[in-house]
Simulated scan of single mutants.
Amino acid sequence: MTHCPARYDEALGMWVIDEPDAVREVLLDPATFRPDNAVVAHTALSVKALRVLQGVGFALPPTLANNAGRSHRPIRAAVARFFSPARVAAVEPLTRRLVAERVAIAQDLLQDGPVDLVEVVAAEPPAMVLLEMLGLRDVDVPALKAWGRESLELFWGWPDEDRQLELAHSAAEFYTWLRQQVGAARRLPGDDLFGVLVSLGLSDEEVCAVAYFLLIAGQETTTQLISTAFQKTLGQAVDNPAEVVERVLREASSVPTWRRITAGPATVGGVELPAGAPLLLGLSGRGGAADLAFGVGVHRCLGAGLARLEARVALECAAPLLAGVRAVEAEPPMVELLSFRAPARVVVSGAITAGMTSTDTLDK
């Protein structure tokens, strides 16, 4: 059977491109394959949901992931400074301490019964590290985690109208909090994320748009990456955590797809696409390099280095625990969204008994 580099998926209503070279070609040509639809709700928002969002002035003008205009470069440069290699390296001791503390808690809890490694170990450290890097203090981490998960479902899920309305209320609450941070930064500018963005001369809506997805993608996708790595290594000796992270990125990234739209008629691998064609690009699990999971070109993920560090440290700290537990659920429930996938929980119990063998699930 001849492989088709671009095929139309009737159920998704999108052209699917998952051959790695073709995906790179698309990502490296943002003029032809624009990012305008990158953060558009995959499931059209209901009137009720829109009213809730409009009630707080919710808006996501082009800033980072959805921006192909001239303003993209200065905004990206300002945010990139928070994720410089030196700053990422400097945050490793904090990352290690936060994860080690939670691994110790998990080990204690295991004496009394099953433990969810997502909830106990993987959930909060990425958020706490991100907030430290962005200079943000006194943030309700559990609230941020809930806002992040629910916003991902709102924009990349398939919620029915009732669920969508619940998610819209959550997004509105998050956006209201963001507006409060912008207002505080305008009154007393500082060197944190909001202060830096305000100093660029961005509007309130632009600052909120940058912060909205940065505070979600900068931590929730890393929690998902760590959760997947944990699931794939249960009952195994983790001898090379960095290589495990690379394998997960190649084969089961927490961000397996991303979107683009054609600016005009275009061709991918000999397949002609019409103008305005929505594209779904496969970033992981198709034989491409691990780095493709973070994208390439001008919209490459700014937090790639941080995500790799956090996942590696999490595996290093949890290695003895992972080697001595077994999964309670053979098939855990999954976060299954258009562009995000990871185990929703990784419940484990007890030490593996003598003679029990484990299977390398990553190679299945």
Rank of each mutant, 00 (worst) to 15 (best):
Leu215Ile: 14
Tyr212Pro: 02
Ile216Phe: 14
Gln180Tyr: 12
Ala49Ser: 12
Ser151Gln: 13
Gln54Ser: 15
Gly57Lys: 11
Pro142Arg: 14
Met128Pro: 01
Gly270Leu: 02
Leu28Ile: 03
Ile75Asn: 10
Val16Glu: 04
Gly113Ser: 07
Gly287His: 04
Pro265Tyr: 11
Asp191Glu: 13
Glu25Ile: 11
Val56Ile: 04
Ser151His: 12
Leu306Phe: 09
Glu251Asp: 11
Thr361His: 10
Ser227Phe: 04
Leu130Ile: 05
Asp291Met: 05
Ala89Asp: 10
Ala237Gln: 09
Arg87Trp: 06
Gln54Cys: 15
Thr221Gln: 05
Leu27Ser: 07
Leu321Ala: 00
Ala49Cys: 11
Thr361Met: 14
Phe58Asn: 06
Phe33Arg: 02
Thr2Glu: 08
Thr233Gln: 04
Ile261Pro: 03
Lys145Val: 15
Trp258Val: 14
Ile216Met: 09
Ser46His: 06
Ala172Arg: 02
Arg345His: 08
Glu10Gln: 11
Phe294Thr: 05
Ala78Arg: 09
Leu225Asn: 01
Ser170Met: 05
Leu28Gln: 15
Glu101His: 07
Asp108Arg: 11
Ala327His: 02
Asp204Arg: 03
Pro85Met: 12
Val296Phe: 06
Arg7Met: 03
Gly190Cys: 07
Ile75Leu: 08
Leu234Thr: 01
Phe194Glu: 09
Thr262Met: 04
Ala168Phe: 10
Gln231Thr: 10
Ala344Tyr: 03
Leu315Arg: 01
Pro93Leu: 13
Ser227Asp: 02
Arg300Ala: 12
Phe174Thr: 05
Ser84Gly: 07
Ala311Ser: 12
Glu153Pro: 02
Val52His: 03
Gly276Asn: 04
Arg70Pro: 02
Arg137Ile: 08
Met133Val: 04
Leu292Asn: 03
Thr233Ile: 01
Ala86Trp: 08
Lys232Met: 13
Gln54Glu: 15
Thr176Arg: 11
Ile105Cys: 02
Ala263Ile: 09
His3Glu: 10
Leu306Ala: 08
Leu234Cys: 05
Ala290Leu: 06
Trp156Leu: 12
Val139Cys: 06
Ala252Asp: 08
Val210Ala: 05
Leu321Tyr: 02
Leu322Lys: 00
Leu280Pro: 01
Met334Leu: 10
Phe155Cys: 09
Arg247Glu: 15
Arg137Asp: 10
Ala127Asp: 01
Ala41Pro: 14
Asp192His: 04
Ser339Glu: 14
Asn240Met: 08
Leu136Met: 11
Pro332Met: 09
Ser284Glu: 05
Pro332Ala: 07
Leu214Ala: 06
Leu178Pro: 00
Leu131Asn: 07
Leu306Asn: 05
Val79Ile: 03
Arg81Ser: 08
Thr353Lys: 00
Glu246Trp: 14
Glu310Tyr: 07
Val268Gly: 00
Thr32His: 07
Gly324Val: 00
Ala65Gly: 05
Gly324Met: 00
Gly270Arg: 06
Phe294Gly: 00
Ala311Glu: 06
Glu220Trp: 12
Tyr212Leu: 15
Glu336His: 14
Gly324Trp: 00
Leu64Cys: 09
Asp138Asn: 11
Ser71Ala: 15
Ala22Met: 13
Val40Asp: 15
His42Met: 14
Pro126Ser: 08
Thr257Asn: 10
Val121Ser: 01
Ala263Gln: 05
Gly285His: 04
Glu19Ile: 15
Thr63Met: 03
Val207Met: 03
Gly157Arg: 05
